[in-house]
Amino acid sequence: MTKTPLLGGEGVAARDLEDLARNKGFSLASKAQPADILLVARPERQQLASILSAQPPYAVIEAPAPDQAFGGRLKRALENKGLLLSLSTATGFNADLTSLLCAACRQRMDFSDERLSDIETAVEEALSNAMVHGNLDIASVLRNDPADFDQYCDLVNERLTTPNYADRRIEILMTWSRDGIDVEVHDEGRGYDISNFQALPQVEAKCGRGFSLIRDLASNVTIAEHGRSLTMSFAP
């Protein structure tokens, strides 16, 4: 059976790459050949944009990568020739991932501009929830009152540089089929209870709109892993 080719980007030590390939059963790709999995160290937005403009890779994983980056989502990305991004929160937070993912989506599937705008809005909400409330573990209640907003900003800035929070993974798996696109967003936060999100937000509410937007815009929404995994399906 052919082994999945793995390539390391700038900043990834050759020895780490060899160890990973050996432990996980991947082959090492040369820079001249396309690799299904690309391991990159602290990628910035421009680098991610350039990587995602080609296909393969089917998975872009930030190094150093924890074991869970090589689990079920990677398997599904490779099997379906989809796209998995597995990044630290520190990397994902400021990379404006939504616009990168939507550009990848536009390249790979023929959606109307209006439907792409729906996908963009819903994916953004899912990423915001996963990174701010999930991985950084910051309650949206701190955005309710101007008196608390300084505290909210300080907390976000502090946690983006605190390894226990900043290193938590955000994973996005996109898969395409004739029926449309599925986007799964996974975080490592404490999860949430979906029953808290059933009520429609008040007009003046500063938070709580995200999930109702997702529900309105996606064709189907599935929540798993106690709220740590949200899958949105979008028909064309």
Binding site: T98, S99, T121, S128, F149, K206, C207, R209, G210
Partner: peptide, 9 residues
């Protein structure tokens, strides 16, 4: 583009 967190802000 704007998201709901920015609407809140």
């Amino acid at each position: 583009f704007i998201d709901s967190a920015a609407l809140g802000m």
